[in-house]
Simulated assay, not measured.
Amino acid sequence: MGKVALLFAGQGAQQPGMADGLVTREPAAQETFELLEARMPGLGRLCREGSREELAQTRNTQPAVFACDLAAARALASHGVRPDAVAGFSLGELSALAFAGAFSPEDAFDLVLRRAELMDSASGRNPGGMRAVLRLPARRVEALAAKAGDAWPVNYNSAEQTVVAGTEEALGRLDALVREAGGRCMRLAVSGAFHSPLMAPASDGLREWLARTLPVPTTVPVWANATARPYPDDPAAMAELLARQASSPVRWQQTVEGLVGLGVDTFVEVGPGSTLTKLVGRIARGATALPCETPDQLDAVLAHLEGRES
């Protein structure tokens, strides 16, 4: 029988009303929100009733998505689901680490709040944006980004999509270069050049925070964005890898391929949306990928996993 991996959604997956049904029905999800609400009063209201504009603010997005991710994962765990590995996209990596026991939920949430502040501040100090480049291979995108200057590939999403972050001037040059090369650029609705060198101040701030609250070895392998390999067991090395994550590329395609190589054939996306489910479909076409945000989706996941065992 193949293995199961949980994938934790990242910033950009947020939507009004996210996780509302799951929190209403699943005690483990409700308990998660109650625990985190003490750290951020109004968190539940933000997820249930926040507008798209309110949810798009980095200081709101990151804690809201983290809470939804962790609530969905803990709801699955309450039904006996024990994944063989976990991974998270960008912010989702912190949710994955919390689920796997690297931090307590409260400490992980405090880290998310600090990370959101740091990344928001870095965006103000070093303004920039992001583009999804389609129809070109990653190596070609890397070359075009280098030619544009002050632009860096930061999300290796699939063979058909690489996201580039950089200054607006450089991204304007990239738009033209990509068109000339026969590709397509899509502007992403984000407030900064995330996972690029422009986020170095955020990484520095995270190092300071993590020096006071070191992670501990996880109970299940957590695959890191920056390396597309599992986190090490050494707490200091874990902390450095997590600090670097804010200003390092997300190697998502390589992560999914690595998990498939270990025998994972079922991926369950926990948290809002189905972005990662769709990416798995492009990267590992023979694998099963299922979203888990709503009660109906959770039931479908449980039915699929039970069917594998029968």
Rank of each mutant, 00 (worst) to 15 (best):
A73E: 03
F109W: 02
R59N: 03
R115H: 02
G124S: 10
F103E: 05
A102V: 14
P83T: 09
S123G: 15
R82V: 15
G128L: 04
A100V: 12
A102T: 11
G92H: 06
N126M: 07
R115Y: 01
V65G: 04
A108P: 08
V112A: 04
G50E: 04
R115C: 03
V65A: 03
S78W: 00
L111A: 10
A77S: 14
D84K: 11
A122Q: 01
G50D: 02
T58F: 08
L111R: 05
L91V: 03
M119G: 00
A71D: 05
E106C: 07
R82E: 15
H79K: 13
A77L: 00
A122K: 05
E54H: 07
R125Y: 00
A96E: 02
D69L: 09
R114T: 15
R115K: 02
D120H: 14
A96I: 06
V65R: 09
F103A: 09
R125V: 12
E93L: 09
A64K: 03
L113H: 01
P63D: 05
D84A: 14
A87P: 11
A87W: 10
N60Y: 08
H79M: 01
A72H: 04
G88Q: 10
G101E: 09
L91S: 03
A98S: 14
D69R: 05
S90V: 07
Q62W: 02
M130V: 11
G101W: 12
R114P: 01
A85R: 12
T58D: 07
P105F: 07
D107P: 05
A71G: 04
R59T: 14
A71L: 02
P63L: 06
G129K: 11
L76D: 05
G88V: 11
S51C: 11
L76A: 10
M119H: 02
M119S: 01
M119W: 02
S104D: 07
L113E: 04
E93G: 09
R52S: 15
S95A: 15
V81E: 10
A56E: 11
G129F: 11
A87I: 09
A64C: 05
P105S: 10
F99N: 11
S104P: 07
G101C: 12
G128E: 04
A71R: 00
A72N: 06
L91G: 08
L55I: 09
R59I: 15
G129T: 11
A102S: 14
A75S: 15
T61M: 01
C68E: 01
A72G: 09
A72Y: 06
A73L: 08
L55D: 02
H79D: 13
R125H: 12
V86P: 10
Q57Y: 05
A100C: 12
A96P: 09
L91H: 03
P105Y: 10
A87C: 13
L76I: 08
A102I: 09
S121N: 11
C68W: 00
S123Q: 10
G88S: 06
G80Q: 08
R115G: 03
A77M: 00
L97M: 15
L76R: 12
L94E: 00
C68F: 01
T58Y: 10
S78A: 15
L111V: 08
A75V: 07
S95H: 07
L70E: 02
E106W: 07
A102M: 10
L97C: 15
V112R: 01
A73V: 09
F66K: 04
A72D: 08
G92K: 04
